[in-house]
Amino acid sequence: MTAITEDGTLDEALERVHSTGPEFQGWLSNHAPMTVEALARHGQARAVHRWLDSYRHRTEDLPTAALTITDANWHEALGDARHLGSWIAHFTRLTAELPWADVLTTWWPRLLPGIIAGATHPVIRVGHAVRTLLTDGETAPRTAELAHALGYWAARHQPLPGTVTPSGTAGPHRALDAIPVYAAVQEGGIRDRLARLPAADGWPAAASGLRRPAGPDDAHDLLAELVRATVARYPRYAHGDAVMLVHAATAPNAVLRVLPALPRALWVPSLAAAWEASAVITAAYAPARALFAGAGAGAAATMEESFALAAAHGDAHVIKLADTAWDVGGPAALAATARACELIEPGDG
């Protein structure tokens, strides 16, 4: 794993980001914290502040905290976006009082059932924050970033009706291939699609198609395979919705990045939630037919070159997919980044 260059760029960027809220225009996600972390990690630190300057019009001020969240009222405030500022303030207090890993361990199982919240952007943001803390060490801006990410997730917490539990016999590749295309579901925005999905014919069986892990280590391996499968699928299915299908890969990879900071007892439920995220996004956005995209006309020869192409493209989703593709490596990862650069217009994210 590539380490952050210790020149202060990421911490400076996070301090800039933390004057803004996690959303803009009502509910669209602020991708800045995730994007600058990926840029700084993969040799593009010089582009970080320039990228932030170009993204400024897609941010709004940090919302104020109107409610003090406590042990007595957090259940009622969970999933209430009116308390977005209050949730961020709550986790800022917690991470100032307790080790960040303890806060994460307490709240991860509480938040995990709502992994689809905010189109999975909150859990992705948590994954970027935890990766930095584990790999590069703790600083005040990095701990604050985890607090902002957890607060965003708590405010947008959104469980799906029913439970998606791996109980089949298929590995991730076959389980994803078995998810039906629901024409009636694939209309409108993500919240409309999610509302219709649980009642769709065949959904419960398809959602349970992934095999049950034998234990924590097997859950880890299945999760890593799920990330590889979603990256490999992206070039062939991205024409369905090139932006939204990015999350089928980046959401489970965020969970994979968090596992080393969690007790092993949480690894199996973490896999189940990650599978739910990928399965839901696949059902809601994957097209009926795959397209053979080859290696991609613009595919780079190395991961370094591939990420540089994503950075030059500039779109947040392209950069974040390239970051996940870097973790996977190989021709499929190079093709995924090239396909995203081809299909996503700069500024879409």
Rank of each mutant, 00 (worst) to 15 (best):
A3G: 11
G8R: 10
L14C: 09
V17Q: 13
E23F: 08
F24H: 15
W27V: 11
S29M: 13
A32Q: 12
E37H: 08
R46M: 08
V48G: 05
V48Y: 06
R50M: 08
R50H: 14
E60H: 07
E60K: 08
E60S: 11
L62D: 11
A66Y: 00
L67K: 12
T68M: 06
A72T: 12
E76N: 07
R82T: 13
R82A: 09
I88F: 02
H90N: 11
H90Q: 08
F91Y: 09
W100P: 02
A101N: 11
W108I: 06
W108L: 06
P109F: 07
L111I: 09
P113M: 07
P113N: 05
I115V: 13
I116F: 00
P122H: 04
A129W: 04
V130A: 04
L133A: 05
T135A: 13
H148F: 09
G162W: 02
T169V: 10
H173T: 15
R174A: 14
A175H: 01
L176A: 03
Y182A: 02
Q186S: 04
E187M: 09
D192G: 10
A195P: 09
L197I: 05
A205L: 10
G215K: 03
L222E: 00
L223P: 01
A224L: 11
L226D: 04
A229N: 02
P235L: 05
A261P: 02
A265C: 06
P269C: 04
A272P: 03
A273Q: 03
A286K: 00
L291V: 15
A297I: 11
S306D: 14
F307N: 03
A310F: 07
A316Y: 08
I319E: 02
A332D: 15
L334H: 02
A336G: 05
T337M: 06
L343C: 03
